[in-house]
Design a binder for these strands. Structure first.
Lengths: 221, 221
DNA sequence: ATTACTAGCCGTCGAGTAT
DNA sequence: TATACTCGACGGCTAGTAA
């Protein structure tokens, strides 16, 4: 049996609570749950036992099953692997060039519908204007996924007959200033991202068009 | 291709950093790393692309590969699954019966070698005596793994020519009192666990032999 | 150099069925 | 009722090799 199949089976047993107590399962039901036959399910559980990953006690109606220390160890190993992967989701650094604000975002950030939500969520009033950073291909790739995925969302609203769409927001830092990267859901493709903050970033950080800057993003997905 | 095999491959690509940027891989090397042939590696990566989990750009010497949104989504899903499993590791509740202290642990807890380490790690001086809780089979199962696995370890030391062995410790709570469960590495099998605290638990919690109690353990493994 | 097709082998799958 | 053995079939594997 492949190692990743062992992980898969132990993961599912663990999810059913088999790490620290016996659970009762029937090979038929267990198999059906993960798209395999009663026969395969039976065979695999028996192999897991042989390999020392689980303990099985046969009942008249099924089995009592619990992970052994070796089984728990294996699951913890996999947990640690995924924790490693989570690190990639915790901080993403992008580098780019300050460009002039043509102002899609600047216009948005004066709209009460957005301002109020920002006040509500982050407890600050955004400086009326966005800092625009132009990214190259590699840096664009890094944020591609974040454009449409965040736990932090400014909801759409209507104002003067116009609809303003959803905006995904990610927290970030430039130098040591808290900033927020805004991704309007229905923005057309652009290689420029827009940053807001509670203050004038150009002034605070002494930024001018053409300067190279680095931005850290802390995605919440 | 089985779903758990997809997860396995994406996990490994993610670990190599392919979530937010292109990485360069060769089918031969990638396959060898995970115990498969160049041919299988090639076939599988090509299937992952077909299924929309990755983007591949062929180079003269290998491929540039990056997870697509669908691929990232899948990895995040798996991260969440393992977070679920972690919950089982965060708090374990056991129930048992107070029994008289015959005092293996009580004796230990007067030894300066242990006391000093406890002072160092937890910043308290243990009350000289342990509270003993007798567990039934089911509750013993829950802590079996913890007996020999903890990040918190009191190291062995020698005193008056005798060696005192390693002790694994887990934080816990009884009612709202912070307690510590001690598992001497070389303790013979027993259905009794020993608890220490900075105070007299019998007095503090009004406990007497034979009483049923509940103990929460917060394993650090 | 690399990827990926072909072909034959091997292992895994599950229907049937014994227990 | 269950689990688990047998065995025919199918899918996936890799060596060889083309591109």
């Amino acid at each position: 049996m492949k190692d990743y199949e062992i992980s898969f089976l132990l993961k599912n047993l663990a999810l059913k609570g088999a790490m620290f107590k016996y659970i009762t399962i029937k090979t038929g039901a267990f198999g059906a749950e993960y798209g395999m036959s009663q026969q395969s399910s039976s065979r695999k559980l028996s192999i897991l036992e042989e390999m020392g990953y689980i303990e099985r006690i046969q009942l008249k109606n099924g089995f009592k099953i619990k992970l052994t220390d070796k089984g728990i160890e294996k699951v913890i190993e996999d947990i640690k692997t995924y924790r490693e992967i989570e690190k990639f989701l915790q901080e993403i650094e992008v580098k780019g060039k300050i460009v002039g604000g043509t102002g899609e975002g600047s216009y948005y950030m004066t709209k009460a519908g957005y301002v109020n939500q920002i006040k509500e969520i982050f407890n600050f009033i955004p400086y009326p204007g966005t800092l625009n950073i132009e990214l190259d291909g590699e840096n664009l790739n890094k944020i591609e996924y974040l454009k449409l995925h965040s736990k932090i969302v400014l909801n759409e609203f209507s104002d003067e007959g116009r609809t303003f769409g959803k905006v995904y927001v990610h927290r970030g830092k430039m130098d040591h200033v808290d900033v927020y990267v805004i991704f309007p859901e229905r923005s057309h493709y652009r290689n420029v991202i827009e940053i807001i903050a509670d203050r004038n970033l150009r002034k605070e950080l002494g930024l001018m068009d053409g300067m190279e800057v680095s931005l850290k993003i802390f995605p919440e997905v």
